[in-house]
Design a protein around this nucleic acid. Structure first.
Lengths: 149, 149
DNA sequence: AAAGATTGATTCTTCAATCTTA
DNA sequence: TAAGATTGAAGAATCAATCTTT
């Protein structure tokens, strides 16, 4: 025991290491499925989903940042790529000159749908198959507490 | 509904998105704590932990790869960095010329301990505080099923 | 000063090909 | 052929500094 360092419970350490491992394990498999289908990585799906859901099919960059739990510069570069590939475009904000809107394009919507095709199968195979329905629900409820600041 | 794509249950999709978000959220905060203390990222801790636990303080690279769920080339480059920083060294295997052993150094052991100092506090703050003890145990049990192939 | 966003340089990751030994 | 490991080149993430507007 080291004074001044609060020791977490064994249960908490085990929970954290397994969150970490399970995430990487499943994530790697989903990404592999997407890649095999010639599709972009999951972060592109997540971004297109947020944009597609938003009113008018667009979000301020800062809101996309919060929705995705990404850094400002990561979003900036992700949007660069989406724009380069024709999946989204930036629009200037007339009310606040600091703000940049990001709007999904029709190609972006089509890509999201194509990705869901593969993504859904991957979640079914790598998650749904392995958990009882109550387990999945229970995990979801408990994990939400970790990111409600 | 698209024929030919197995649809995962809503519960499974929610579980997966929350695993993903919770992992990123907690991971970012732990990494920030380590960084603020001038320490290297979590993967270094994980590697040093595996090496330190192993018999003789060393593992074959391929076993480190499996323990960490990393790719061959990622481990190769991680060991490059550990070696460069004096935390581990490669040793050739006399029995099988294809194999490379990776051994932890005394500096590596010291670093792992210094990192645990910070890491423990971070897990206490970002995980232990937010979950009831039974919840942590339950999460651990359920999540393990996701990476037992 | 603070909020939103961008960028040059560096570091790390990933891809795809390669190398060595079994 | 396959297993274990490495590597040049390309792509992405990160750092730290910067820019613009509020």
């Amino acid at each position: 025991m080291v004074p001044g360092v609060r020791q977490p419970s064994d249960a908490a350490v085990r929970a954290w290491t397994r969150i970490n491992r399970a995430q990487r394990f499943v994530f790697d498999r989903i990404e592999a499925d997407l890649k095999q289908a010639g599709l972009p990585p999951l972060e592109v799906y997540d971004a297109l989903l947020e944009l597609g859901r938003a009113a008018g099919g667009r979000l301020r960059q800062v809101d996309l940042e919060r929705a995705l739990l990404f850094r400002q510069y990561s979003v900036s570069r992700l949007v660069d790529r989406l724009e380069r590939d024709g999946m989204a475009r930036r629009e200037r904000c007339t009310e606040d000159g600091r703000v940049s809107w990001v709007a999904i394009t029709p190609s972006g919507r089509a890509l999201r749908q194509a990705m869901w095709h593969v993504y859904a199968g991957a979640v079914a195979r790598h998650v749904d198959c392995k958990l009882a329905p109550e387990e999945a629900a229970h995990i979801a409820t408990a994990l939400e507490k970790l990111y409600r600041d």
